[in-house]
Design a protein around this nucleic acid. Structure first.
Lengths: 154, 154
DNA sequence: GTACGATCTAGAGTGCACTCGAAGTCAAGG
DNA sequence: CCTTGACTTCGAGTGCACTCTAGATCGTAC
């Protein structure tokens, strides 16, 4: 079951930063903010030696961040994992809460897209009605605008 | 065609803030940042007197902001509207660029949701396998965790 | 041994989008 | 007239999430 060649692999902070797509500054800052589920071991010289699974952990953090989770949520989740087994229901609750936030965000964005799409379609049709190619490079010398067609508020 | 009762309606900054769901501070700040398509008129006493269509304008700005458009984009759009007719193709280009950004955001969020959903389903199944109701209030006294089932990285 | 790049710590600085405070003005009610 | 509350300007402060600086140390290659 164990694959020592892979799992024994460690990363320097520079390597991990490159692989995870974050800066070394960010990795140190994440650590100082308690976003790792266990202490990052050091070499005798004091350098960070990340375990191979740090990359997967950072990938998860990355997804949470991308989807708007504040650092406090990542910290809470890391604290639960750090605390060890027995709190899986808490972890699940945290993840599900974020899922709901994610659903809400997606809905919001879809609603925004509809509004903005409506607006741009109005401009597009107005331009076509005036005999202008709506996808031509901008800056034509037409005198009269299409504001009345699109909306009073621009 | 004109409906003077409605279109002649003006709003004080407090009214408009309430209706648009932003703070009066924000309205003044938006104005100072050039986010209105024309100068906001003042009463003889120096107070702002927003035209009735300001509400629709703010609704559009709100949708753009909600969907991640930075203030600079709103400023550019306001500047185009302020410049008057003849630049509709530019306005359309701006809106369509934002639409593309919106599409990308939605895709990203959907990808995030899948990852996080996968994670929470794993916890859920692990809890069920251990005979625990995954939706019960958290904090049960189970000794052994499900980490091995979910993933090494938490 | 020395040069060099990567890493270390602690703490300051950045950018965004507000958000608030201070000190004063305006307008309607009593 | 006086109070009250909404309004004015200007500038400073806030919160978030990094991002960077300075000055020292580590470790490998020559």
């Amino acid at each position: 079951m164990d694959e020592p060649i892979d799992t024994a692999r460690t990363y320097s902070i520079g390597e991990l930063a490159r692989l995870a797509g974050v800066s070394v500054h960010t990795l140190r800052w994440y650590e100082s903010e308690g976003l790792f589920p266990r202490d990052v071991p050091r070499t005798p010289g004091g350098r960070r030696e990340y375990a191979h699974d740090s990359l997967a952990w950072l990938a998860l953090l990355g997804r949470l961040r991308e989807s708007g989770a504040p650092i406090a949520v990542l910290r809470d989740y890391a604290a639960l994992v750090r605390a060890g087994s027995g709190n899986e229901a808490d972890r699940l609750a945290l993840l599900r809460a974020h899922e709901r936030s994610l659903d809400a965000q997606i809905e919001t964005l879809i609603a925004c897209r509809e509004v903005i799409r409506g607006k741009s379609l109005a401009y597009q049709e107005a331009l076509v009605a005036r005999g202008i190619d709506p996808f031509a490079a901008a800056g034509s010398a037409v005198d009269e605008g299409v504001d009345g067609v699109v909306a009073a508020a621009g």
